[in-house]
Nucleic acid binder design. Sequence first.
DNA 1: CTGCACGCCTGCCCGC
DNA 2: TGCGGGCAGGCGTGCA
Length: 287
Amino acid sequence: MPELPEVETVRRGLLPVLEGAVIAAAEVRRPDLRWPLPKGLAARLTGSRVVRLRRRSKYILADLDPGDGTAETLILHLGMSGRILIGDVRQGSFAHVAGHLPQHDHIVLTTDAGARIVFNDARRFGMVDLTPTATAESHRLLAGLGPEPLGNGFSDTYLAAAFRGRRAPVKAALLDQRLVAGLGNIYVAEALWRAGISPLRQAGRIAQARVAALVPAIRGVLDEAIAAGGSSLRDHRQATGELGYFQHSFAVYDREGEPCRTDGCHSTIRRIVQSGRSSFYCPHCQR
DNA sequence: CTGCACGCCTGCCCGC
DNA sequence: TGCGGGCAGGCGTGCA
């Protein structure tokens, strides 16, 4: 479920049950996801208080106080299929959640208040690590990330400089997390449609004014998606079990052959493959 | 340095 | 109904 808006939605869903709570029990059911899990993860989580839940790009960061004077941060990435579900110790399972496969519940936390938090990830592209809080930002997974698209470090001057000299298609440039952090296949497609830029255009060859238009296009689509609780594809759910509904607002993503939503445009949305991934765009509105 | 193909996994949907 | 192929919201690695 994982681009920036979905991860932010998960973070917000977790806030009331996890921030300030103590992890009373932690169960780690397999030794690895994408990589081996940190040694003794369950033991290191158990008894820790979650002092703050943050997000950086598509990563959720849980700052932990183990109570021994140290400060650790749990780093979590949902990969392609990772989901976090919140339940209650008094209810046994998530059988009511559509598409939930309990054999992929890899990490189960129970808080002192009786909340049950499950990390479920069928494809296991997710990543989990534990690192000292003081140096969390320079963890190898986070060190190279570009600015947050909703933050102050992201501007038209920044983006123009980042694009300069780049011959890759703008689609690929925006997916490069070192350039700007948190965009994925859906929101790049949507932002490019809003800005009227073809995904095929070379990043370094976009006129300054059009690069400038891309910044509010990116911010706008991310803000709206967060407000909608993210996008729910293939029955995926938010942590609260509710469905996000931004998928109903897609202008181009997964709309191959359907009419462009620009007033007066009678073109149909086209699907192409760029560096192995689908791109959707309107060949009339996007140049 | 840049750009791109590939591999990592499982589930689901479609066409035959 | 069963089966194979293609597809999926990501990212690190390794190659040219």
